[in-house]
Amino acid sequence: MQRAISIVAIAAVAFFVIRLNRKLKQKVKERTKSLEESNEKLVKSNELLGAQDSMQREFINIAAHELRTPIVPILGFSEVLYSKLKERRQKEHREEVLGQLQEQEEMLEIILRNADRLHQLTEDILDVTRIESQTLKLRKERFNVHDLIVDAVEDSRKRIANGNVKVVYELANSTTIVEADRRRLRQVISNLLDNAIKFTKEGTITVITTMRRKDTESNNGKGEEEGGGASAEEVVIAVKDTGSGIDPELMPRLFTKFATKSYRGTGLGLYISKSIIEAHSGRMWAQNNDNNNNNNNEFGFDVNSQLRGATFYFTLPVVSKTTTELRIEEKEEAKVINDQRQL
């Protein structure tokens, strides 16, 4: 009797377990189907978003190209007219005519300034589309980056209307050879200088360079002792200003698209600049001068904690000099020393 009861109990439990298992399987099947349907909807939504994003980028790219087409002749002919007006004003002596010519010059200056802004905007938009589509091409060549910095500083001085601001440079040495796209690198330096000029009412904007050793590891993770690592030199370029500094709220997204709190500019310049430097195997970052705990940062730049403003940094790999280049450099230095002695 007791045995029969045990068999019945076991049978009842087994029946309950089988029934519960069937229900669970049904639930799992229903949830699996629901998840598959949700995943299918997500895939379709992602495909739709991707298609819309692609269409948007294509439209922006076409629009920027179409905008650039009429801007170029507007700028070109305006510059020609401006140049001719200046020549005519220099030759003219009648005060009445001189007043008219000056007024026309001022109007042309407004046209040129705004056409140039529109041209820069279209170029920035095109650069962003190239970066996002990974079609930004670099035309690399070997050159002395210090020559580029000097030229960029000289040009920036012409754009300063405020006499209370001066732009200077402090270069580590006379020659630092990099392999880079000269035009793109000039674009980066000019952009950083323009930003510094925009936010500096008085004081000094300084472009500083320093050299440092950069340890790089190979893919196999071995150290230098095993022949897997190499040590290379890089140049660190800093643009330091005494302006208003970077808004702490803006700092985390400083190098993202449209990151700006200024009514002037689109906030694309720093995003483009950082992308260009990273395409050269370098890096870019920034900090407020008053956020430093000591007077010298990790690269030896003097960024006094009592100074206002901000400092933007970027790095570039330096090309090792060949024996021929070293000999030429030695001869040039010897010539400079000899010339100084003769003086």
Rank of each mutant, 00 (worst) to 15 (best):
Y271C: 03
V43A: 12
K44A: 08
S45K: 13
I205Y: 02
A232R: 13
E217K: 14
K274G: 04
A4E: 04
N288H: 04
L192M: 06
I62N: 05
S34W: 12
G229Q: 12
L35A: 14
L326M: 14
L35C: 04
Q56N: 14
R88D: 14
I71T: 02
I74R: 00
D302L: 07
F314P: 01
V43M: 07
Y313L: 10
N61P: 02
I160K: 04
D151N: 14
E47P: 06
S218G: 15
E329V: 07
K84H: 04
L192D: 00
E47F: 10
D181R: 02
V239P: 00
I246R: 00
K274S: 06
R213N: 09
W285Q: 03
Y313T: 03
S54V: 06
I189P: 01
E233I: 01
E329H: 00
K222I: 06
R182E: 07
E47Y: 06
L307S: 13
L42W: 09
Q56R: 12
G267F: 01
E179R: 08
D53E: 09
Q102R: 11
I110G: 06
R88W: 07
K331T: 12
I197C: 02
I149R: 00
N291V: 07
T200Q: 00
L20A: 07
V168W: 05
T69N: 15
L171A: 08
I272G: 01
N338P: 03
E234G: 00
A161L: 15
N173Q: 14
V80T: 09
K274L: 02
S54P: 05
P73K: 03
D124E: 15
N195W: 01
A51V: 03
N288Y: 07
S133C: 10
E298S: 15
A238P: 01
R213T: 11
E234Q: 08
A9T: 11
L126F: 05
L108E: 06
L270I: 05
I111L: 14
A64G: 03
S174T: 13
S78Y: 00
L268G: 00
L121H: 13
N144Y: 01
G267C: 11
I277G: 08
E105R: 01
S38I: 08
T242G: 12
V153W: 02
S156Q: 12
A310R: 00
A11P: 03
E132S: 04
S305F: 11
Q340A: 15
